[in-house]
């Protein structure tokens, strides 16, 4: 319905002039309908809950005394150990670390090789199957059958799409 704003304003102002309170109230309600109802921004509820101290907070381990104690203990023990090690001890620990890294690289590399080999095997099998299927379909008989099958399926789908809107109506 088309709204003639000026006519509505005129009707309201005329009612005000005539002192028709109820009519003026009714007409002004129509005039005021053009004013938008303002809305707050999207994060309003979150901001309110945050400010009211009602928002769910993720536990901050650092904020708890036992979290700080655990970190401080770990740092202290690591520091004490580092200070107490002799040069021979440093050498032994360093060699042990290097050995661990080398073991990891070696085993990791072997695992990666095995994974890639496995993937190639799978893909090779699929490729063989695809070639065999292609050869089979390239023959005139199966090809004709396939085209016929696709044509029937396409026609059935088109008929179904025509029928669906009719049923909705």
């Amino acid at each position: 319905m088309k709204t003639n704003h000026r006519e509505t304003v005129r009707a309201w102002l005329a009612a005000e002039r005539r002192g028709q309170d109820e009519e003026a109230d009714r007409q002004f309600r129509r005039v005021a309908a053009v004013l938008p109802r303002l809305r707050p921004s999207a994060g309003f509820a979150d901001a309110v809950l945050q400010r009211a101290g009602l928002a769910e907070t993720t536990p901050d381990l650092w904020a708890s005394w036992w979290g700080r104690l655990a970190v401080a203990s770990a740092l202290l023990s690591a520091g004490s150990l580092a200070v107490s090690l002799t040069p021979h001890g440093w050498l032994t620990a360093g060699l042990a670390s290097l050995r661990a890294v080398a073991w990891g690289v070696n085993h990791g590399g072997a695992a990666a090789r095995a994974w890639i080999g496995g993937a190639f095997t799978v893909w090779a099998g699929l490729a063989h199957a695809a070639v065999a299927l292609g050869r089979l379909l390239a023959a005139p008989g199966p090809m004709l059958l396939l085209v016929l099958n696709l044509t029937v399926a396409g026609a059935a789908l088109a008929a179904l799409r025509r029928l669906l809107p009719l049923q909705e109506n």
């Binding site: 707050p40 309003f44 509820a45 809950l49 009602l54």
Partner: peptide
Amino acid sequence: ACRLLVARHSRVVFN
């Protein structure tokens, strides 16, 4: 419940 109350009345309060 607090969130629902805010969602329900925020527009009117803001307006």
